[in-house]
Design a binder for these strands. Sequence first.
DNA 1: TGTAACCGAATGAACGTTCGATTGAAGATG
DNA 2: CATCTTCAATCGAACGTTCATTCGGTTACA
Lengths: 187, 187
Amino acid sequence: MKNKREAILQATLELITTNGIHATPMSEVAKQAGVAAGTIYHYFESKTELINDLYAVLKQRMGEALMQNTEGQTSVKDRFFRFWLNLYGFFVQNPKEFDFLENYAQSPVVSEDVKKANEVHYSPVIAFLAEGIQKGVLREMPVALMTALVYGNVVAAAKLHLYGGFPLQPAHLQQAMQASWDGVRIN
Amino acid sequence: MKNKREAILQATLELITTNGIHATPMSEVAKQAGVAAGTIYHYFESKTELINDLYAVLKQRMGEALMQNTEGQTSVKDRFFRFWLNLYGFFVQNPKEFDFLENYAQSPVVSEDVKKANEVHYSPVIAFLAEGIQKGVLREMPVALMTALVYGNVVAAAKLHLYGGFPLQPAHLQQAMQASWDGVRIN
DNA sequence: TGTAACCGAATGAACGTTCGATTGAAGATG
DNA sequence: CATCTTCAATCGAACGTTCATTCGGTTACA
């Protein structure tokens, strides 16, 4: 039964994002998942491991969303916009996942090992930006910095849309993407 | 004695940022602050109120840092860079404060009321950006969106510097600020 | 002498985890 | 096809610990 494992992870995500880690007891997770408390320990060694596993699962999903339809041989600009929208779309369509990743990812409960191991999901983007720089389309700048700036923009836009009481219209999205692009492109 | 109150807040900040909320018992806060457990309840009604007070104190400090030397009648661009550096400097010089504000601010422990009440500290920046738009120097764009994008950049840069294993040199900072600026300025 | 600040042991609730018992399905045996 | 064996999956009460908070008493100062 993969269902139960999935149900436990889902319940954990929902409870943690609405109540916080310190206020989601395992008993509550069990109830929400439709499972006995002891059963959780059949799938996860501890509460900490449960949370770390959840982090890994969500990071992977985010990575998959990020990569959708990025194979074509279009321009750097088009691919930049595609990545941007992919990430934004994932965040906005998966608010709980976004919430968890943003707010609990760098909390001390998630181990450094797990974080490191999940950086893989970004590597195609890193490569893409490096290529853009090498082609002379993007600015000379450490790729790490460029990634951070753009990622920061996407996160900012998603937060504004989801929590900021300011639902972004397509026109706003266009402005936001353009701002990101103008910040890293040459000229 | 204002000292004890201050010591308790400081201890709370340090323990929460290194261990997380769920792993900082009041007994530990007391020990670190050099105070008896009961004394904390002389200054704060509960753990929740303690955390909310800490949030308010830190937000205010951030607001003060943000405003330093922004009175002069220089160009929009100069003032933009000044705000940017003020915020970045505060984050980098106060890593614990930054950590707390970024990671626990929107956790469910901090009440919505307190968050709303502390939005005041941003208002001069909002006004500045609105003025820049009206002068035709900054793009036509909702101020909320512009604020979010730029703030997102500053946070991203600070995180990269502090946690990303990529200490930003002055040249990098210049690139980051320029990217932010190019994203919102006209042309 | 009164009162605000302070102490820290005690309290009671809540929590993560354990464990012995139960179930059910998948072979194995006859 | 019936019966037996096995073991992973599941349950939930119980355990031991930890924690936020209380409170009766003490200190220090005005």
